[in-house]
Design a protein around this nucleic acid. Sequence first.
DNA 1: AGGGTGACGGGCC
DNA 2: GGGCCCGCCACCC
Length: 111
Amino acid sequence: MSRDDDCVLILAVVRRIPRGRVATYGQVAAQAGFPKRPRLAGYALSHLPTGHDLPWHRVINAQGRPSFDPEGPAYRQQLQRLADEGVPNVDGRIDLARYRWQPQSSAPVLD
DNA sequence: AGGGTGACGGGCC
DNA sequence: GGGCCCGCCACCC
C-alpha cells in the first residue's frame, strides 16, 4: 500500500484543480487522504511521466510560491502558466487567500 | 541496516 | 518578514 497507489490518489486530486486556482502540497495530500504528508504530494509530482496532461503548475507551496529554484526555468514557467490562466503573482508570490482552490465537497453543509 | 535527500509544513525566535 | 529546526516518510544508495 505505497508508492504507486498513493501517487495515483494524489494525482487524481491534482487533476481536479480548476483553471485559475491553486492548491498547496499539503492541501492536495490531505485531500487525497494523507494529512500531514505534503512531501508525498511533492514526491508524486516529481515523478510525472513525460507527456502527461496534469495541471502540475497549479500546485504551489504554503508560502504561495513555486517549489523550485527561483533562478531556474521551472520556477518561471510555473508562474507563467499560472499568469496565463489568470493567476497573478507579485514577485513570485501568489495570493493564496484569493486564489486557493476550495473544493465544495470538503465540508458538505447539511441540515 | 543506516544515513542522506527531497516540487513540504508548522512552530519558534 | 526571514531563518532555523524538526517531524514526516518513500526512495536511493
